[in-house]
Nucleic acid binder design. Structure first.
Lengths: 223, 223
DNA sequence: CATCGGATGGCACACAGTGGCATGGTGGCA
DNA sequence: TGCCACCATGCCACTGTGTGCCATCCGATG
């Protein structure tokens, strides 16, 4: 866990068993996403997901704490990629610039897999509209993304922000992605170009970073 | 629901049965909060909560969809009060001023009940630290607060903001309260004065409204 | 080949929720 | 005052979630 070099770059540092476990987890997640999007989470039993993934019910619960949790890796994938890019950014860049740059990289020109992932996310968000339990997973995923973002933002701020300010910045950045994805899920826009998650998220991020002051000062300028 | 005048000010518009129902709901919520804070939600069964509240298990589930939900009215109470004040504000005031004013009113000088409510919230947030299911309720409460805040913000913005901007403003405002409460729950500060929820929330709100731009421009001003 | 460790599967069980039906108190009406 | 409809509550049965425990299987190591 600690002193394992485990290879050089981003190659799978996995033994056969490790790779199988990762594959099984993805297998389950995809099975769950498919069933959830098709018939809704409520009408889907954990048993059913396990069967589709080719594992026993007991095994399912060794990979995920709850039925709905099964899709959380898919829902978190986007934010995870974004955060990984941020971790690689240089501290001197300036926070909002770094945030925007990473956002552009992670969402702007998605490959085939990323595009499929986005469409899957849309399907899940739409299923979440009628299912409180699935919505709860979406909330949790975003919240955990925010928490994981805190140390990254702290590093980028390089000591120029207080702890609370760091948390606020992480929250605002997470809001940008969340609201962009939710807004996009309500539309039929594609994964690139006008109305895409990428452009929406950038808009949201700039609004929040540019300051709500710009949004609110209109009425107060005179009075 | 619609054309019921139901008295003048904020008096209980309730028939005897209605009042009993409200009382029962509070009874259950308080019983749940007490047990959750004392022994953790996981070690508390729904049956136990029902018994403490003096109702049958079946009745418990007529009031709340899930065990953890039982405390959600208590967790939402603060944000509810704040939103109610915002609904009464005049649209001409300017958004951020209205937000701050309502925040000061709802949190600044709490009466006995409000103080107890805040301490109860702290107990629940601390219990939530070890309990994923209870954390999920906290997430849900905040998310729903945000959603309910959207039309209020839209009214206050008076058509000067686009739909997405309204959502972002509602999200930022909710973040301020949430992070203020979470920060406070980690401390031993009282309910008033230095480090109180009120002052923390105002700080957070001003940070977010003043714009993350102020937080991030340091490093970019030169370059 | 022998053996160990971890992943998996099957079984049993406590608890979370839900539908259906019986009951008792509340409130309306004559 | 007495009758009656209604609704909240309680009880029972049942499905599904999630977990502990033990047997088994398979890959890793010598």
């Amino acid at each position: 866990m600690s002193t394992k070099p485990s290879g050089a770059s981003s190659a799978p540092p996995a033994s056969l068993t490790e790779r199988r476990k990762a594959a099984t987890q993805l297998e389950i997640a995809h099975a769950a996403a498919e069933l959830f999007a098709a018939q809704g989470p409520h009408a889907t039993t954990a048993e059913e997901i396990a069967r589709h993934a080719g594992v026993a019910l007991r095994t399912f619960y060794r990979y995920f704490r709850s039925k709905q949790d099964a899709v959380s890796p898919l829902l978190a994938a986007g934010a995870d990629r974004w955060r990984a890019l941020l971790e690689a950014a240089e501290p001197g860049t300036g926070l909002s610039r770094a945030l925007e740059a990473a956002m552009e990289q992670s969402l702007a020109a998605p490959d085939e897999d990323a595009a499929r992932a986005l469409l899957r996310t849309r399907g899940l968000l739409r299923a979440a509209a009628d299912d409180p339990a699935l919505r709860a997973v979406w909330y949790r995923v975003n919240q955990e993304s925010e928490e994981r973002l805190v140390p990254v933002v702290a590093r980028l701020a390089d000591g120029r922000l207080e702890a609370v300010q760091v948390r606020l910045a992480a929250a605002a950045a997470t809001d940008a992605i969340r609201i962009a994805l939710e807004t996009w899920a309500d539309t039929e826009a594609g994964v690139t170009g006008e109305g895409s998650p990428a452009s929406l998220a950038l808009d949201c991020l700039r609004q929040l970073m540019g300051g709500m002051g710009a949004l609110t000062s209109d009425g107060e300028a005179a009075g």
